[in-house]
Computed example of a mutant assay.
Amino acid sequence: MIDKMNEFSTTTKVDKNFLPHNGIKELYFLHENFKNMTGIVSDTIKKERKLNKQLQDMDKRKVEFMSMVSHELKTPIMPILGYVQLLKKEELLGKLNTQQLDAVNEIDLSVTRLQKLVQDVLTAQKIDLEKLTVTNSSINSEEIVNTVYNAFLPVCNIKGIKLEKNIKKSQQITSDPDRINQIFSNLISNAMEFVPNNDACIKIGTYDENDQIIFFVKDNGSGISKDEQKNIFKKFYQIDTISKRKKEGSGLGLAICEGIIKKLGGKISVKSDIGRGTMFYFTLSKEQISLQNF
C-alpha cells in the first residue's frame, strides 16, 4: 500500500488493478478529472485567443478600409471647391444672377460640410490606428485663446452669438498648438449648435490650477443630462435634443477631442445640467511632456 502511494506521489501513475483503498481511488479519479478539465480549459483558451485575433484583424481591416474610402472621397473635394470659388469671381466668369448665386452658395456649403466630415473620419481613423501625429513646441496659453477667439468672432457675430473670452493668467506650456486649436474648434462648433436663438453666449478661456493649465468652452444652451454625459465621447454618438439641435454633425467631434487630448497627455471633461448650459474643459500639464508619434 505504502509503495503504491509513494509511486503516485512521485509519478502520478497508479496501477488501475490496485485500487483497494477508497482514499487512493478517489485521489486517482480526482487527478484524472483534473487533467480532463485542464485540457478542456486549455482548448477553450486557445479558441478564445484565436477568435480574439480574428476579431482584431477584422476591426483593423475595417478601420483601414474606412481610411481608404475617406481618402478617395477627399480627392475630388478640392477641385469642386476650387471651381465654386471661380464661379464667384465676377472678373473671371462674369456676374451670376441671384438664383445662380444661391445655387453656388448651396454647393459651397454642402461641399464644405462634406470636407469637414471626411476630415473628421480621417482623424478618427488615425486615432484608432494610433497614427495621429503631434508636435512639441513652447506655446502661450493666452495666445492660443486669442487666436481661437479671433477666428470664431466673425461667424459668431453673423449668427448672433455673443463670444466672450476669459484669460485669468497667461502660462507657457509645451504642447501642439494646431491640435489645441482643433479641439477648441470642435468644442465651439458643437456649442454653436446648442445655444438658444435669443441671448446666445459662448465663453472661452484658460486658467491654471496647481500644475495644470485648463482650457474651457462654456455655453448657455440646453444642457446635457447626466446619463448622456456618460456617452458623449463615444464615436457617432449624438445627443437626443429633439428640436433643440439640427443633427448635421457626424458624432465624431467629441471623440476626436478626447483622442487628441489623450495623445497630448491631458484629459477632457464636461460639466452640465439640463437648462443650465454646458462647459467642456481640458487640462494640460505645465511641465514638458515627451510626445511620441506612432
Score class of each variant (00 low, 15 high):
Ser185Ile: 05
Ile256Glu: 02
Thr135Val: 14
Ile224Cys: 10
Phe152Asn: 08
Lys53Gln: 08
Ser269Asp: 11
Ser67His: 14
Leu86Asn: 12
Ile274Cys: 10
Gly265Arg: 05
Val14Pro: 01
Leu96Trp: 01
Phe65Thr: 15
Gly275Ile: 00
Ser137Asn: 12
Ile224Thr: 07
Leu27Met: 15
Ile242Phe: 11
Cys156Ser: 03
Gly249Asn: 15
Ile2Ser: 03
Arg49Gln: 13
Lys159Thr: 06
Tyr237Glu: 09
Ile167Glu: 01
Ile77Cys: 00
Arg49Leu: 09
Lys50Tyr: 04
Asp15Gln: 07
Glu130Tyr: 08
Ser110Ala: 13
Asn198Gln: 07
Thr174His: 03
Lys46Arg: 05
Ile173Pro: 01
Gln229Trp: 04
Val111Ala: 09
Val145His: 01
Ile213Val: 13
Gln56Phe: 07
Asn190Cys: 13
Thr123Met: 11
Lys53Val: 00
Lys159Arg: 14
Glu91Met: 03
Lys286Thr: 02
Ala255Pro: 03
Leu101Lys: 15
Arg49Lys: 11
Pro154Trp: 00
Phe233Ile: 04
Asn157Ile: 03
Ile268Asn: 02
Lys168Pro: 00
Val41Asp: 07
His71Leu: 10
Met5Leu: 14
Ile167Trp: 03
Lys46Met: 07
Ser189Asn: 15
Asn105Lys: 11
Ile144His: 03
Pro177Asn: 02
Thr12Glu: 12
Glu26Phe: 06
Lys116Gly: 04
Ile161Ser: 01
Ala124Glu: 13
Glu164Cys: 08
Ile260Trp: 05
Met192Leu: 13
Val270Pro: 01
Asn17Leu: 05
Tyr149Pro: 07
Asp240Leu: 11
Asp227Ser: 14
Gln56His: 04
Ile213Glu: 08
